[in-house]
Design a protein around this nucleic acid. Structure first.
Lengths: 140, 140
DNA sequence: CTTGCTCCTACAGTGACTGGAGGATGCAAC
DNA sequence: GTTGCATCCTCCAGTCACTGTAGGAGCAAG
């Protein structure tokens, strides 16, 4: 039961850098674990699960603030999962918004590159397009 | 010709906050303009163009480092626009990569929300999906 | 002369880490 | 026992692209 795990080992198992683990501890996402006599952090399998959860959620783009709530909720398994769905739903909408923005942006970049005749900067369509803000529908 | 523009007016015309303009000056993207007797910055139409260029490029997601190069290039209109195309092309590839990542992410989020039966956190599919890292093809 | 807006500098804070300095610990080989 | 190396510790500064605040000065209108 006491299969103690060093911070380096935890780092390898969860795929999170050692410094980042310590940062998460300071930020309150990971608990301060017990220490060895030589003051080293001693983790267990529960910490690996929690850190993997954090890593996965961060990869999915959840902010640390969301993560704090998500972790708190997952610690109390008998509560309603409504707030969890709310956070995930809000995040999904944000992701969809980002995709839409990036797709528009990609269109503008492609257009810029296609119409450029690759001569001198003076006639560069890319530079012109960047300077001329008028045809990209920006608010202002 | 001397239609002097205050920093606030420049801010309104280019759609960039006053503090951000001063930040750009410190960062070397905007030149330090002449000053009035009362030590206020005096801009002209050229500054409006340059700042609009910067704003537009930033909106398109170019980093300040890229911007420095882009601005330098646009100041010498007789050079080749090859480097410009290179920067824009690199950026386009990055944008396409981001879109792909976000689309995968959107799929995972949707799947999580769809399969959740909205009961207690203990059975919440969203929490489970976040905890279980195995089926999302993450490297590790 | 006062009110209220704009402007000035200088510096701290954001989010989510990352990296380095300078030192302690742990363990294996010699 | 000691040498050497990897790993660990804390603390703090830096990253990016700003944003916000404090504390003051300039300037035009009423």
């Amino acid at each position: 039961m006491a299969g103690d795990i060093s911070i380096g080992e935890l780092s390898r198992r969860a795929g999170v850098k050692v410094t980042t683990i310590r940062f998460y501890e300071g930020a309150g996402l990971m608990p301060a674990p017990p220490r060895s006599e030589g003051d080293r952090r001693l983790y267990d399998a529960g910490h690996v699960r929690r850190l993997s959860f954090i890593r996965h959620a961060r990869e999915l783009g959840f902010e640390m603030e969301d993560l704090r709530t998500l972790l708190e909720l997952s610690d109390r398994p008998d509560g309603s999962c409504g707030p969890v769905d709310e956070i995930a739903g809000r995040h999904l909408a944000a992701v969809e918004g980002k995709i839409a923005k990036l797709t528009a942006l990609k269109g503008e970049l492609s257009r810029m590159l296609e119409t450029c005749n690759h001569g001198a900067v003076g006639e560069c369509r890319v530079i012109e397009a960047l300077a001329d803000h008028s045809h990209c529908g920006g608010e202002h």
